[in-house]
Design a protein around this nucleic acid. Sequence first.
RNA 1: GCCGCGGUGGUGGAAUUGGUUUACACAGCUGACUUAAAAUCAGUGCCCGAAAGGGUUGAGGGUUCGAGUCCCUCCCGCGGCACCA
Length: 819
Amino acid sequence: MEQYNPQKIEKKWREKWIRDARWQVDIKGDKKPYYNLMMFPYPSAEGLHIGNLYAFVGSDIHGRYMRQKGYDVFEPIGFDAFGIHSENFALKKGIHPRELIKKSTDNFRRQLEYIGNIYSWDNIINTTDPEYYKWTQWIFLKFYEAGLAYKKEAPVQWCPSCKTVLANEQVISGRCERCDSVVESKNLNQWFLKITDYADRLLENLKNIDWSEHTKIAQRNWIGKSTGYRIKFPIFNSQFSIEIFTTRADTLFGATYIVLSPKHELISQLPITNKKEIETYINKSESKKQTKNNEKTGIELKGISAINPANKEEIPVWISDYVVAEYGTGAVMAVPAHDQRDFEFAKKYGLPSKQVICQNYPEKICPVLEKAYEGEGHLVGSEKFNGISSSEAREKIGKSVGGIPQVNYHLRDWLISRQRYWGPPIPIIYCDNCGTVPVAEKDLPVLLPYVENFQPTGTDKSPLAAVEEFVNVKCPKCAGRAKRETDVSDTFLDSSWYFLRYPSSGEKNIAWDKKITERWLPVDMYIGGQEHAVLHLMYARFITMFMRDQKLLNFEEPFKKFRAHGLLVKEGSKISKSKGNIVNPDELFEAFGADTLRTYLMFLSPLAEGGDWQDEGIRGVHRFLGRVWGLVQRQTTPYQDKSSTGQAGKQPASAEASAGRQETNSKQNLQKIKHQTIKKVTEDIERLHYNTAIAAMMAYVNALYENEHSPEDIETLLVLLAPFAPHITEELWERLGQKGSVHDAVWPEFDAKITKQEIITVPVQINGKLRAQIEVENNTEEGRLIKSALESERIKEILGDKKPKKTIAVKNKVVNLVI
RNA sequence: GCCGCGGUGGUGGAAUUGGUUUACACAGCUGACUUAAAAUCAGUGCCCGAAAGGGUUGAGGGUUCGAGUCCCUCCCGCGGCACCA
């Protein structure tokens, strides 16, 4: 018999599918559009990471399933090829990123063709293509026109050894992800997009989208909405006052001092007597801002004091690096008794503490605090507010001192400028006469020049600043001498709108075509990594909302459904080059073929949980596909020796087993298993539990080997298996003499009547412990169940002449006798 | 520290609304085929016990006729955020 030879059959179908553009959708004509999106990869020079494949196949199975359910599934792919990753790798290799990216994307494409996903290759995009980044620049201009792109001086993270600015996400616990050196804070003039204007909408809309719950939670935390009051503390004997923000106005009577951020603007104006010391402290705190430990330091502003507006007490004013300048008003009231940070600070510097919330109320004695009590309770030591609940007191006290209700967000504006080379230049021109002038839309793209020396400069300028032909331009307004902006934009800007471009990738004169976009968007299903839960997914939502407000889109949430997949690890540890536990897809294609690789990846565990790759395990899946192959061989090969080819169930090993099998081997029984399999596979694919769907198909194959079956029984298997193993199923479909493609075969329906067993086994427990099993008809009434249980030989034996005190029966589930 | 997820055989993992713990695989062991090996096929498959039986889902407690599943306390692992007042 012909052996399963994946290399041969996969090559045959792969080439045919590419030749026929088999999976290409009709962008302008399809009637049942379904947009199935996966997060596009950054094309590393090492080739596809097995983790990429894991995610892509997970998404592709969903796409293929929807396709078989009758939808026109658009599954595009592209390359997120700009950015610091590619650039750093190019630096390391000493190859220009442009050449490197060309090589990497070619290699990626080859590998992606091998894996057999239903990509619409005509719609491929690459963010480094001027035809793409032209529109990235255009998006920036739209923000600029709307007043939502602005430039201002801001602190950024700087790695002294890599001599470059780092993106926030490249700073891990205050250290550079590449070289592990401590990053510094540096003030630079930067471009921001005003995402904070959308904070509330970004938060509110979360209620109405179908996303993985923990992704939504991560976004909520990142946006970090908090409501409270702005309250003024007058400075004693002066015209000044310090405004603080607090969410706990109920603790105002317990505020025993005030703390300002060292960057607070009022510090230079206040009549302080120890100015010199203060300056020294500020300089010191500036330089070691990013240190790891949370040990708080501070210094008192001598010569002044503030008045607590609630009880009119004079309290000291301090500055400390534990107060964040950018949040709230850059100043806080310190309540050591009810805030752990204040508690620690007060302890260190011997500042007073006053308890005003008591959890034992109305008992007179409140427990002595060993740490701050941050929970709710009733007020004490708060004059006329004593006795009311802390939640109620927030508003009452806040209002009584003239506090202004205030909502603050953790979310900051999005810093998009980078002093790097490998990105789209920000389309702005600076003219001495006209000031900041945006590049006209007709002049886009502002091409990224080919620069031999693309190393970061080590100054705060991008390498582009040294390219005179690039920098010097005529002002678009007055035609006078002007200079270009030399910063490029962040990669996250490239990826924040790519899904809008895919369907319109063929359009030359517009970022996205209105009609096409109406047909395909918003995205029906988006599957991607949890690591983008906040950044990318937040930015994409922001861009979409903004474009809706610009009337350039007619929806404001880009992804109807989002599901995060888990992380693929190998034998319990992260897969990485430094660990030397790389899994090479090319070797696996060679050894087992794409179908086995696909199916094994999905067999590991539920997609959302990630998987643990084990080299040994893949053989089991390969064996399974070999057995599927064998089933069809037996159908199609002229009769040889049926008994040795696996109708083995007919010759059971023992007489006992034979009795049990007589029934299970009936044709009727196979039909039942078949319909149960259809049900299980369908339901499990829908909830992305591919592992159990595969297990069900394995069990079905085992049943086919043990039972007499018809070609139709195998066909059903092939259709169910097609999303997982597209090549072998197509080949076998053809060999079974079917017309057309298995991938166009309609997804089978199951018959609920057939899935139900007519005779079922019900466990009988005594005191909750399994003691016997009885065979009864499906849906046997509770009373009859108990009767049958009591009649069981085994139960009679155990009970003897005892009578159960209590009997419990649940239809089709269990009988429990209490004695 | 806070938030989220998880802890079930030697391993990856199964287990509807609380109802037979360990489906489906991997590794192991036994056997068949083979000169042999590989491949394939069949069987076996938690722990204690000779057996009857008993124990077992990170630990301890609770609710229940019945808990992997629900509640409380604690331990461990992973991921994210990290002085956001």
